[in-house]
Amino acid sequence: MNIKLFLLLIILLALLAYGLLPRTRLARRFKMNETLFYMMNIIGVLCGVVGLIVTLIWPHTILSHHYFELILLPAFLVFLFAAAVMNIQSPDAPYDEKQNHDMTTAAALSLPFSVGGMFLLYAMYKEGMIDGLMWFPVFIFLSLTVFSSATLYYYKHR
């Protein structure tokens, strides 16, 4: 099957499930708990790291063959599932105060990393070392990796 069609189909099915989940009996079974919080961030780290490695090894094919979207798909699905669960459970306060605090700190940390990464890419682009379009996957995967790993670290160790 064409990879574009496969991705589109999965995304459509996921959005359909997001809309239908609150109306089913299954909705009561799901809870926004620590396991889901860990799962979201672990999958975020895995997708981010795999994405960064693939982008650095095959910079041209990651965009032309849609590997970029394919690698991001698990993170997208788990975040969408978490969003659906939050929507069902407690839309006002889906995370507890420490989780909020840890994610805020992780976001503040991921900003300088992303900006630093973009400066580095810009310098490499000016020297003709890389393709200009590479900034997008690198930015997404770098932010995802730093944010998710920092959230996990702060949550567990602080």
Binding site: N33, E34, F37, D96, E97, K98, Q99, H101, H157, R158
Partner: peptide
């Protein structure tokens, strides 16, 4: 209404809870 990890961090003195908590 918080996670177990939050209680662990408060007990260890790693996290300062809000006044409300």
């Amino acid at each position: 209404g918080v996670t177990r990890q939050t209680i662990i961090s408060i007990e260890k003195g790693n996290y300062v809870p809000s006044v409300l908590l």
